[in-house]
Every structure is written in C-alpha cells, then in structure tokens.
C-alpha cells in the first residue's frame, strides 16, 4: 500500500506539473480563459448545470436549516 501511495503521488504530481506548464504556455501564447469557458459552455452547457446544482444545494441547505431551527426539533 505504501508503494502504491508513492507511485500514485508521483504520477499525480507529474500530471499536475505538466498541466500547469500547458496552461502557462497557453496563457503566454495568447490563450484566453474566457474564450475557452464560452466554448465549453456552448458545447456542454456547463453554466446551466452549475446554476442548476447550485440552486439545488442552496435549497437543500435552507430546508435542513429550517428543520433544525423548528421548535421541538
């Protein structure tokens, strides 16, 4: 198990470093994060999903809070 942790952590570190380098190179060569986010939103409707799930979580939290604050609870 210890060896597994070692191997996995090494792979994760390398992947994160490569990802960071990729993002850095992209930003330095004229990449635009807003443009990328718009492209993803257009393709996968990410903001719609994010809004949907954030509303759901907000509602869940308020319901649980009301139940806990209710008299006799």
């Amino acid at each position: 198990m210890k060896r597994g942790w070692k191997v996995v952590s090494m792979i994760i570190l390398v992947a994160i470093l490569l990802g960071a380098v990729g993002v850095g190179v992209g930003l330095m060569t004229g990449g635009d994060v807003t443009r990328v986010a718009d492209a993803f939103d257009e393709r996968y409707h990410l903001w719609a999903y994010i809004d949907l799930y954030s509303d759901y979580v907000r509602e869940l939290v308020s319901v649980v809070g009301d139940a806990l604050r209710a008299p006799g609870a």
């Binding site: 960071a20 990729g22 992209g26 930003l27 060569t29 004229g30 990449g31 635009d32 443009r35 990328v36």
Partner: peptide, 8 residues
Amino acid sequence: ADIMIVIG
C-alpha cells in the same frame, strides 16, 4: 493557445 490551456 486555447488548446494548450484546455490540455493543461
């Protein structure tokens, strides 16, 4: 540049 950002 956008491709690099997405891949990263």
